[in-house]
Design a protein around this nucleic acid. Sequence first.
DNA 1: ACGAAACGAGAGCAGTGCTCTCGCAATGAG
DNA 2: CTCATTGCGAGAGCACTGCTCTCGTTTCGT
Lengths: 248, 248
Amino acid sequence: MSRAVLTFVASALEMVHNGGMSSSTPATARARARAEITAEIKASARLQVAAVGASGLSLRAVSRDLGMASSAIYRYFPSRDALLTALIIDAFDAIGHVAEEANLSLAGSPPEKRWRGVAHAVRRWALDNPHEYALVYGSPVPGYVAPSETATSATRITDVLLGILAEAAPTIARIELPEPPDETAVEMEAIVPGLPPRVTALGIGLWAQLFGLISLELFGHFETVITDRDAFFDHQLTLAAHSMGLDT
Amino acid sequence: MSRAVLTFVASALEMVHNGGMSSSTPATARARARAEITAEIKASARLQVAAVGASGLSLRAVSRDLGMASSAIYRYFPSRDALLTALIIDAFDAIGHVAEEANLSLAGSPPEKRWRGVAHAVRRWALDNPHEYALVYGSPVPGYVAPSETATSATRITDVLLGILAEAAPTIARIELPEPPDETAVEMEAIVPGLPPRVTALGIGLWAQLFGLISLELFGHFETVITDRDAFFDHQLTLAAHSMGLDT
DNA sequence: ACGAAACGAGAGCAGTGCTCTCGCAATGAG
DNA sequence: CTCATTGCGAGAGCACTGCTCTCGTTTCGT
């Protein structure tokens, strides 16, 4: 079908992943072909997930799309779940990339503006890629292994948010905020060393709220209740900024 | 088609609601057998979902479990999705029931205690029934129909929370809170008439946070970061109460 | 008592993930 | 350059899935 398009998209994505320094090590022609085909499989699978969701991803459909035997896929991914895991990592990276971009494009702006910009960007990406969002923040798929490989990609978005939080900490620390219990305090201290635990706890709560809002909207729980969702979401960000004392 | 689905679902729901006291209206023996078998199918399906998740629900496994032919299942549920939809409605009801119970058991207590009690009860239920929680608040399954029949069951939990919010409104209204934009304000007014829109908006935000916290915990996003999750969750409720001005 | 409706069982279709074996082609060591 | 090793694609096949259709049997309303 759109073989060439898929190849292009895939290689472009691959470029993003290893930062473009792959051309320096062409290795053998076979290795290059392998990387290319691996990327094609992922690209086709990504399209399929975007179209019908994770549960509808079929290895045989991917193999048909690429014009190869279904058994050949197993030369590249040991199982369907492995392919799905690769897509999950990609989605984590995509969401992290979106957040980083939004944050960078607002460099120099006050923390509140950066927080709002990142939140809006993440929501926009989620609305544009609902199935990939669900892949990451929805219910874990079949056997839900949650491999540790995803960790480094998963922390990108939280790093951005916690970075903004840390920068805003002096302002936040001025407002009255309940102190967490000791057990929680030490864990907060471990997450962002040097930051007052009560501030980190607030930040994680707002992070949960952010994804709660996006998930509820995306999974249809606002269906008949809230229609102007842009305005509603923006007001929620205003509320969040208010609770951090960033609006004064 | 969806007409038939709704009929099936409705009768199934009826069955659950009047429990075993249907003997007053035995109707025909066949109707009783039908209700019984329908309930057995759902029970077996529920066990299977609890064991292996929604994506692992197999009609044939259910039929084997009940010792009947797989095709016979279709006399009771027109499709796998219809069976899943029935389970979703049950899960909504279960979660609503848990919330109502927690709220009732704290009748007379101040709103903060009730809010905390309900939140803890919902989280506890989610931790005890992860797959059923995912059925409801995770990513919608394949084609995500979200039939309107779920609405009445879905609002039970929100009714409880909004009820507590309304009762606490006089206290909440005393704190300084940003005013939502006009479009949002009219929608808030429609959700809880008479309540200040800024209070309703705050409440919905906290509702989103509640489910965001539960979802993140349940779907493994706190895995390596937060270990004492009870204490953390409780502190988040303290933060929520603080943001509503209920702690002074 | 009889026609109609509901029901259960079985066969069958198209599809799935995954395994195994077979031959061909590229690879790297001698 | 030769040649054994390895990587790889194709095909057949297994066990499983949701779902449909047909065909007798049982039960119901009248």
